[in-house]
């Protein structure tokens, strides 16, 4: 009995903290666009799912810009499952769409289906997430954010902010889901920039699983074990928002006593930035629709496109946030 129990518990303990930012089933229904005319470009787009506000904004951007670019979009929601995505791509191939775009649910296992697309002479564009395929001829281009660059931008602001100071700057970091690409890259980019100056010290770094609740919980513990925190760097807005509550609960003023840098720029984060509770946000924009349609048109015409296109992204200070907030789409 006890052997069985401990076995069960081990499994439980391993599984219970594996909460990811892209977990859980989704509810969105697949929808296929109406059949287009012959001169119109038809694009098959397979989305990961609808797991976050960011993803929903991403979907919306693709759908809206397809409409304004006059591209007939066949949209399919993979609900976080690779098999659904492979099915969707195969059906796009059968329907003889002009171009296929998709955000891969996972990195590996795409070679077979991408070869089928290549044999059918349908160009493929990757959006937002990359695949680890050795054969780069399987897709035309990868359009998405550069997470390392985002981390660097965060670090650069910090270096600029403290350029006149010689005191040690104590930094705590809230990482994204352990092992995920955004978490690894945002950490690496940030570390690279601040590593040049020994006054910057990351005194604690822990995962907050990209969620508000974990961000708050971890920050509470940081505040108690490290009495002297100058800067918080959170890998997304949500963890930062959770941490703000923890900082306020500790009787400190977020944005003043502890400076806060986050990545993403979702609406709640921008609001906190405009309110002065966050100091700086590096944008990770889901609005890659217009760029995607532009690339699609070029690819269909047979024009050369760069193998890697970085999403047009910016950064926000508190003043910029106040201006941008009223027109923020997500």
């Amino acid at each position: 009995m006890f052997k069985r129990m401990s076995a069960l518990l081990l499994v439980g303990a391993t599984v219970m903290t594996m909460a990811g930012c892209g977990s859980g089933g989704t509810t969105s229904a697949s929808q296929a666009g109406p059949g287009g005319g012959d001169d119109k470009i038809t694009m098959g787009f397979s989305q990961v799912g609808a797991e976050s506000g960011w993803r929903t904004a991403n979907t919306k951007s693709v759908q809206e810009s397809a409409e304004s670019a006059g591209i007939d979009l066949k949209f399919s929601d993979a609900q976080q499952k690779q098999e659904n995505q492979i099915k969707a791509i195969r059906s796009f191939i059968q329907q003889k769409v002009d171009v296929i775009a998709f955000s891969p649910v996972v990195e590996s296992g795409w070679d077979t289906v991408l070869k089928e697309a290549k044999n059918a002479k349908i160009p493929v564009i990757l959006t937002d997430r990359a695949v680890d395929s050795q054969d780069t001829s399987l897709y035309k281009t990868f359009l998405g954010s550069d997470f390392v660059e985002e981390g660097k931008k965060a670090g650069q602001w910090l270096v600029e902010e403290y350029k006149d100071s010689t005191d040690t700057v104590n930094i705590v970091e809230l990482q994204g889901t352990t092992g995920s690409a955004p978490a690894n890259d945002r950490k690496a980019g940030f570390a690279e920039v601040i590593g040049a100056d020994p006054k910057f010290k990351v005194i604690a770094s822990q995962t907050g699983d990209f969620t508000r609740a974990k961000g708050k919980e971890v920050m509470e513990a940081f505040l108690k074990s490290n009495p002297d925190i100058d800067v918080l760097y959170a890998h997304n807005d949500d963890m930062g928002l959770g941490a703000i509550e923890a900082i306020e609960g500790a009787g400190k003023v977020p944005g003043k006593d502890i400076k806060i840098i986050t990545v993403d720029a979702v609406k709640d984060g921008m609001q906190a930035l405009a309110d002065g509770k966050i100091n700086y946000i590096v944008e990770c924009s889901p609005l890659l629709g217009p760029q995607l349609m532009d690339l699609a048109q070029k690819v269909v015409k047979g024009e050369q496109v760069p193998a890697r296109v970085v999403t047009e992204e910016t950064t926000f200070t508190q003043e910029q946030a106040k201006e941008a907030l009223p027109t923020r789409q997500y």
């Binding site: 439980g12 219970m16 903290t17 909460a19 859980g24 508000r212 609740a213 509550e245 709640d268």
Partner: peptide, 19 residues
Amino acid sequence: VSSADGNNAGLWIELDAIL
């Protein structure tokens, strides 16, 4: 946290509870 997160709230809490 003054917010509801349908994806992550209470994720795996059943396992913690059983434990």
